[in-house]
Structures are given as C-alpha cells and as structure tokens.
Amino acid sequence: MPFSTFFFFTLRVFLVGPLLWAWAWEYPSARAEGERLIITGSSTMAPLVSEIGKRFETLHPKVRVDVQTGGSSRGIADTVNGLADIGMASRALKSQEQHLNGSVIAHDGITIILHTSNPVQELTDDQIRSIYTGSSTNWSHVGGPDSGITVVNKAEGRSTLELFLDYFHLSNRDIHAHVVIGDNEQGIKTVAGNPNAIGYVSIGTAQYDAAHGIGIRLLALQHIPATLETVREGRFPLSRPLTLVTKSPPAGLVKTFIDFAQSPQVHDLILQQYFVPLQG
C-alpha cells in the first residue's frame, strides 16, 4: 500500500530522525574525563553566571557549566540536597544557613520605582511602609495627586521580596498588594504601564531601562540616590550581595570556578549584566 509506506516513511523522518541524529552526534563528542558543574538558584543571577560559565568553559575546555534557575531558596535547597554543586542566592546567607559557605561575586541594589508622570520626588521609609501596609492608599497622603496607589509586590520566594521586607521590617502578610510580579523586567513593565503604581526592582535593571526611555523613575532612599555607584560604595541602604553557595568549603573544580567568578577577569561580564563588581 503506497499510502501507508509513505506515511510511515514520513513518520520516521519527522520523529525518529532527530533522535538517531542526536545519538549519532553524541558519539564522537563523548567526553570520558569531562567534568560537569551544576549551578542552580536565583533567576537574577542566572544570566550573569551563565556568561561567567561560558567564559570558564573556554578556559577549561573539558568542563561543562550547567546553570539552572528557580529562585534563591531553590538554589540553597538544591545545594543542601546535593542536587547542585553550587547554589546561587541573590542575598546574604541567613543565620540558619551559616553552616553553608557563601562567596560574594557582585552586588546588586533594590530601588523603589514610580511612573515618570508621578510628581512625587521622594518618599521616606515610613511613607513607603505605610503604602505597602495599606495605611496610605492615595497618592495625596504622601504629597502627590489625588489618585489611588497601585502597590506592586514581588512573589513569595523571590530574594528581592525578602530583602525588601527585611529592610522595612515587614512580613509578607502585612503587605496589601494589588499586583504580584516575578522577575525584574515584569515589575518594570507593570509600573511603566500604570501612572499610579509603585514597585521595587533591581537597581541595575531599572537604571538601564530608565536610561533607555522606559517610563519609570528611581527614588532615592534616605536621601541617597539609587545608582550603581552608591551601591558599589556601600552607601545605598537597600542593597544585596550576589552569593555563590556551597555545602562544604570550596575545593577542586568548584573552588577554581568560584575564584574565577570573583576575579577581575569577569568584571566586564558583571557590568554587562548591570550589577556592581566587587572592587573598582
């Protein structure tokens, strides 16, 4: 029967072909002594660590660095379970995590953002707290126009949220949010699209987007402007370290990688991703 021959031939080409091809491909490049580093965690750090890993691979051709995302909490959990060699946490280690080893590779700041059309120029910590706890629901309460405030909050498990709550001495249950967002860019798009919104995101991302014509404005905190410079100088109050976490003190390949990630050789990559390198 010509039609069934034709059909099963097409089926083979379309479905089985790629599989065979993949196996054939695997064969010549099989790495007998190749080593693999698995790194999981913070979605903020994932693009940066991927780029660092790529450069590391060019220096160590037999090593493969696999970076996976999912959030800082997951990075810590995977490291503790042994699923990952290195965890990524975009915050400092907590007191109950002190048995783990953290190595800071860069810094990041969190900034409060408003829509550009919002006339409010500065908010005190107390005002921000009252907005996020729902005591101030109108911009006129904090010196703005008479319109309702849209509170944009981060989703549970995001280290930006944890850092924000920690700084303002709040718990997530106190917060009356209208919008809950995940990643930085999502937060920026939400605030840029709503003149009455207030949100908080990574300074590096916000500075880049504000400089490229996205309609958001970065607010100073305690009169310190939110810029990469103030974060690097350690003056900006709401900043966080980007940390690589290991279960035991780094040794062997893991240590080589962490040393590389802390070295000036990757400063250009850190700057490219709008974070702040360790020194200079």
């Binding site: 993949a22 695997e26 991927s50 970076v67």
Partner: peptide, 18 residues
C-alpha cells in the same frame, strides 16, 4: 520545561545535556 530540560543555552552534545 524550565524545571526539566533547563536553562542552559549551549549547543546540546547529547540528549543528556540540558
């Protein structure tokens, strides 16, 4: 897929690669 095939953007060398 983000939790199964993963996030690695390297050219896959086998089906066991992310």
């Amino acid at each position: 897929l983000i939790f199964t095939s993963g996030y690695v953007a390297r050219m896959p060398e086998s089906l066991m690669d992310s």
